[in-house]
Amino acid sequence: MSRIAIAVPAGILGFLLYIGLVVALADHVLEWHWLLQVPFFAVAGIVWAFPAKWLMFWAAGQR
């Protein structure tokens, strides 16, 4: 089985799970002061890119 055939469904599933987690946490974060909300949403908006990068490199067969 090709790495791409594994990476695509794994990436989609992982991204959907990540979105669900962030949305669930955001319900609690929205009660915080806006100065605390900004870093949460900034980090949540960026963090997903690191595992996605790793998954893309793995699927391409690069290190």
Rank of each mutant, 00 (worst) to 15 (best):
I6G: 01
W48E: 01
L30A: 13
I6A: 06
V29K: 04
H33K: 13
V43D: 01
R63T: 09
V8K: 14
A60Y: 06
L13R: 10
R3V: 03
W34T: 12
G20D: 08
V47H: 03
Q37M: 06
L13D: 09
P39G: 05
D27Q: 13
L21N: 05
F57C: 01
A49D: 04
A42T: 14
L55M: 08
G14W: 10
A60G: 13
A24W: 15
M1G: 13
H33W: 12
A5V: 02
L21K: 09
I12N: 02
W58P: 00
A10K: 12
H28M: 08
V8H: 07
A7G: 03
W54P: 00
A7H: 11
F15I: 14
E31Y: 06
W32H: 11
A49E: 09
L35R: 15
L13E: 06
A44V: 05
V29I: 14
S2D: 14
L55P: 01
P9Q: 06
L13G: 11
L30K: 15
V8Y: 09
A7N: 05
A60M: 13
A26V: 06
V23H: 05
G45E: 08
I19S: 07
I19C: 11
Q37C: 06
L16P: 02
L25W: 10
I12D: 07
G61Y: 13
M1W: 10
A42K: 03
F50H: 00
Q37A: 03
F57M: 08
W34S: 12
G11Y: 12
I6D: 02
D27H: 12
V29N: 01
A26H: 02
A5M: 11
V43F: 04
I12Q: 04
A59G: 09
I6L: 13
V29S: 03
V29G: 02
E31K: 14
L55G: 06
H28D: 12
L35A: 14
W58N: 02
V38D: 01
R3H: 10
P9T: 09
M56C: 10
W58C: 04
V8S: 11
L36K: 13
G20R: 12
I6S: 08
V8L: 15
S2K: 09
L36V: 04
A59S: 15
V8C: 09
V47Q: 04
A60T: 03
A5D: 10
R3D: 08
R3I: 01
I46W: 12
A7E: 08
F41K: 02
A42V: 15
L36F: 15
Q62N: 09
L55H: 07
F57R: 15
A24N: 10
H33F: 06
V8Q: 08
P9L: 05
W34E: 13
